[in-house]
Design a binder for these strands. Structure first.
Length: 204
DNA sequence: CGGGTTTGACCCGCGC
DNA sequence: GCGCGGGTCAAACCCG
């Protein structure tokens, strides 16, 4: 299986290489979505509506704001859905358990994308309502529990859905791709999107 | 031989 | 309680 550089679709707030994807071979980055939990909650449609989703999960918090203008986002080939934080209640105490999940939808002919981190495949499952199988990967770095799921979009097989769960607690093995110093997690969530929404429009 | 992949089994949560 | 589906485990296998 060919590997290809995917820029860095990585929820790790410390790095920012999105602006410098290195297209190679048959990788086509002509359409790009940043989504949250889209696989779980929006299977019926990839339409670009954003108005009704936040009400689906009362515990969800939008950390991305300021993109009401979908048209402008479309023009940059990158459509932001939202990033959420899930809050879970734990017995007596209300514990805020942050589960960073970011889902990317990428038009690609291959499913393996090199995002700068080293992944170890640990499972593969067939998915209901999809002819394609979902692959499960863990970050192979010691002590890092970041996971990702990769599956092909059942509605449009030319797209690959990549979901990242968690945040890397280490640097990417290929730090040469990264140029921006670390910023705080929540700040990054905004800045990362904002920067690329404004700078990527002519990248592809 | 070490590290990654494959794949069937197992676990768990959820809906009925 | 039961079945289903998603997620994970781990032994076997593969490959450099």
């Amino acid at each position: 299986m060919d590997m290809m550089d995917f820029g860095n679709p990585n929820p790790n707030p410390s790095y920012q290489s999105f602006s410098a994807p290195l297209p190679s071979s048959d990788f086509i980055l002509s359409d790009y979505l940043v989504l949250d939990d889209v696989v779980d909650h929006h299977q019926e449609s990839w339409s670009q509506s954003t108005e009704t989703e936040s009400s689906e999960k009362a515990a969800s918090i939008d950390v991305i704001q300021g993109f009401s203008d979908e048209t402008s986002m479309n023009n940059s080939n990158m459509i932001l859905k939202r990033c959420k934080r899930e809050i879970k209640e734990n017995n007596s105490n209300k514990v805020e358990e942050v589960k960073e999940r970011v889902t990317f939808r990428t038009r690609s002919q291959v499913e393996i994308m090199d995002d700068g981190y080293k992944w170890r495949k640990y499972g593969k499952k067939s998915v209901k309502n999809s002819p394609y199988q979902r692959n499960y990967y863990k970050c192979s770095s010691e002590g890092c529990s970041v996971k990702k799921r990769v599956e092909r979009d059942s509605k449009d097989s030319s797209y690959v859905l990549t979901s990242y769960d968690g945040v890397h607690n280490h640097e990417s093995p290929s730090t040469s791709y990264y140029t921006t110093p670390p910023v705080s997690t929540l700040l990054y969530s905004n800045e990362w999107i904002l920067n690329h929404a404004s700078t990527n429009s002519s990248s592809y």
